[in-house]
Design a protein around this nucleic acid. Structure first.
Lengths: 167, 167
DNA sequence: GATCAATCAATCGCACACGATTTAATCGTG
DNA sequence: CACGATTAAATCGTGTGCGATTGATTGATC
């Protein structure tokens, strides 16, 4: 029995917070697609453009920190953005290991387009803005907790498992 | 200016609810991985096993309804689960278009293992259970709103865009 | 200042997600 | 019964995510 009073055999998708997040994230990506298609960018590429709009000339690693992604995902994505003319990639002169990425004129324009398009999405969902800010905070806190516990797990021996509610 | 008082140029990742969900969902998948690795299944496969545990002998389409996925994703995934001996796939005798999927003995056992492993994850995150249930409900409602608005968009002409807060 | 460890990006392989199309089976209408 | 329309699953191509490894550069220690 779990703390929710469920036997493990009775756990369903409705009980899993992870599935709520997974399916909501997929739904968002689908909702964005029609608008981003017109701009010829993907959802992940859009997130990179937003990142660079806030702080330009970042290294691949710095982009990864902000998006919680690594070079194995970012390098090919950035190459596609470069091929499309939205970013510039060049090795840092002071440290040739690093690659610095910056928005081109075109990239900055597309970023603006995408952000404006994004805002129209809000009209289609019923939640109030207060709810949205609060929800964002809760989800972010959960993500940070998961990330932190993963880091700890790498630096500490395994703990004895303790049953708890559906995630 | 958005309702949040942000110019589009000033929008950052912190303002985007979609990014909170995206990064949290990725974090969950990473958190699950060490446990699911031992069971030789992926996170998506785990979700399918949970689905079939609640209602066995579903068609591919019925699994897709529950997970918000389509046959292009599910068919290869189910073939891998079948190859691993966790599910059985056979065409429905009454309607040969459909493929019915059911858990094998081994699949049911693995599902139980995975669910039990899952529950140990909860120990590592600080949120109370009330918060978790409430959060799950909010995220699910948001996902359903996004899904609904996508369906409506397919059946209705485009509406005039109205600026709103960061999603 | 030579050498070894650490760091950063890139590469490789695999498993999703998903738009678009195809194939096969069933249904609806005449 | 025929035949076009509909439905279900499968197939194909592209773009992520990510574990594992590699290659190149820098840093640390002697």
């Amino acid at each position: 029995m779990t703390r929710d009073g469920l036997k493990t055999e009775e756990i369903g998708l409705e009980d899993l917070l992870c599935f709520a997040l997974y399916s909501a994230s997929n739904a968002f990506s689908r909702a964005y697609r029609p608008m981003l298609d017109q701009l010829q960018i993907t959802y992940a590429q859009y997130l990179v453009l937003v990142t660079l709009g806030a702080a330009d000339d970042l290294t691949v690693g710095e982009i990864g920190e902000r998006l919680f992604l690594e070079s194995n995902t970012l390098t090919p994505l950035l190459k596609r953005l470069e091929a499309a003319g939205f970013v510039e990639r060049r090795r840092d002169a002071n440290d040739e290991r690093q690659v610095r990425v910056r928005l081109t004129e075109r990239g900055r324009a597309i970023r603006g387009e995408a952000c404006r398009a994004t805002l129209t999405l809000a009209e289609h969902i019923p939640q109030g803005l207060d709810d949205m800010a609060s929800l964002r905070g809760q989800v972010t806190a959960l993500r940070d907790a998961l990330t932190r516990s993963a880091t700890e797990a790498r630096n500490a021996p395994p703990r004895p498992p303790i049953p708890a509610a559906g995630l």
